[in-house]
Write a protein that binds this DNA or RNA. Structure first.
Lengths: 256, 256
DNA sequence: CCGGTTCATTGATTCATCTCAATTTCCTGA
DNA sequence: TCAGGAAATTGAGATGAATCAATGAACCGG
């Protein structure tokens, strides 16, 4: 169920970039990001099997793709735009567990209900497939399920990195690691790797890195003053001293 | 070929030192924890296919099962004992990403090398299978791969919970969540759920919760003084006020 | 082009946790 | 039973990030 959140406090900055305008997803055969998605494991001749059970939806910035706790009836692929996954504590504390870009996958559940929420950061295009119907396709095409295992395994590995970040890194190390990861992430899907364009707000970055907005802002300023990054605009980050950032991110900070 | 002693089925959990004494894992058919492990997905009549590629090792406390960065040639099942998974920063900071108990799985790699280390917390018994040979078994028994997907998906979900813990919870909330999780974990494999026996040191708990040893110790004391737990011994924790612990763990702490 | 709203930055202060430093307790081997 | 060492606890003080508060910048609708 896709719902719009009327009183969203921390919503998506619909910053520049016509990213979400990518169209034509109704036809899997013409999907520009198929090679990035789990559907890419399926030989093109069988694509209509996915197509038959898939629905594509355009959703506005701030709309929910998944609500934590809902029955997990579907899985989703981001076709265009970007999405944040997050979990909340009862008093409103928020932890973002990941940002999704085109080709990324979400909606896996272990106990029948989603364990996290998913919300679009910008106008996005989402493919959804009912879990029940997908199982039949898996039965005919085990390579799909194998790809899914590879994807989930990779996500687990990324999650373990994030645990190290959240448990043991300082604010500057977290931000450096974040920027480098976003850069690599962008590059992999064919977007510019260096001036990194960030689709999320400072609040989202804070909720992802286990910090506050103020600390994120101060740390951006600190890295800029040190010459590690430049900030042409608030959402555009230039990695000026990649070595320095990498050293920071891995915890081998240089004295300064 | 060593045989299983049926008498001691329920005695595995009695005390730390006794745990790892479980023997006779050379024969999968007699494996007491098979139903907990991923091998449990395989119909018993095919067990020899796993058996044929599997090796069992007894390892002492502190021995490494996996070294971060090594070529990922095998996957592992814990048959007895307990294991910690962890990642290090170059300056020695450590983040434990999980504790494994009998039936648990590790060794999945996404890029050909292990992304974390694994070390036994007590004398343990480990089954190892070469990844290459396992693939052939997967090809014949897709239910095994499906089970693996379920396991990895579940681990991902647990990892996301841990991100919330590390990013947003206070020391007391982290410890409460940890104790409750260990309790549930023990129960699931047939060990006592209430006086929780912890196989790991305070240092390990600290490295798991993103805290220091001192903070863990002080927080234990605080929870004890509040009546939430009792500490019969250093490694035995009695959950005295489960409601209070649950409220704490979920971030809905009661005023006190 | 203006006014209001949201988002980001910066400053001042507080606080939870860390660090450094003693004890104390537990465990082990003689 | 005792001595020595490791692990855990406790205390005192330092500190990185949070909180509280104010200002500045960007964006949007009219």
């Amino acid at each position: 169920m896709i719902t719009t959140n009327p009183d969203r406090k921390r919503t998506a900055a619909e910053n520049g970039s016509g990213r979400a305008k990518m169209l034509g997803m109704k036809d899997c055969r013409r999907c520009e990001i198929r090679h990035l998605a789990f559907c890419g494991a399926l030989d093109a001749q069988y694509l209509d099997e996915i197509q038959a059970i898939m629905q594509t939806r355009q959703i506005p910035a701030g709309a929910h793709v998944i609500n934590e706790g809902d029955a997990a009836v579907s899985v989703f692929n981001v076709a265009a735009g970007s999405v944040k996954l997050y979990k909340l504590l009862s008093d409103g504390r928020c932890q973002i567990t990941g940002f999704l870009l085109p080709g990324d996958f979400c909606g896996i559940a272990t106990d029948g209900t989603y364990a996290y929420s998913a919300e679009a950061l910008e106008p996005s295009e989402i493919c959804s497939m009912p879990r029940s119907k997908l199982d039949a396709v898996f039965a005919r095409h085990p390579e799909l399920e194998r790809r899914l295992l590879a994807i989930v395994s990779h996500e687990l590995s990324v999650a373990q990195d994030q645990m190290l970040l959240l448990g043991r890194k300082t604010a500057a190390e977290r931000l450096a690691a974040f920027l480098l990861r976003q850069s690599a992430r962008n590059e992999r899907i064919g977007w510019p790797a260096n001036p990194v364009q960030l689709p999320m707000s400072r609040a989202d970055i804070a909720d992802f890195l286990g910090l506050t907005i103020e600390t994120v802002s101060r740390t951006f300023t600190k890295l800029r003053d040190e010459g590690a990054i430049r900030l042409p605009t608030k959402t555009m980050i230039e990695l000026a001293d990649r070595e320095r950032l990498e050293a920071l991110a891995e915890g081998g900070a240089v004295e300064r």
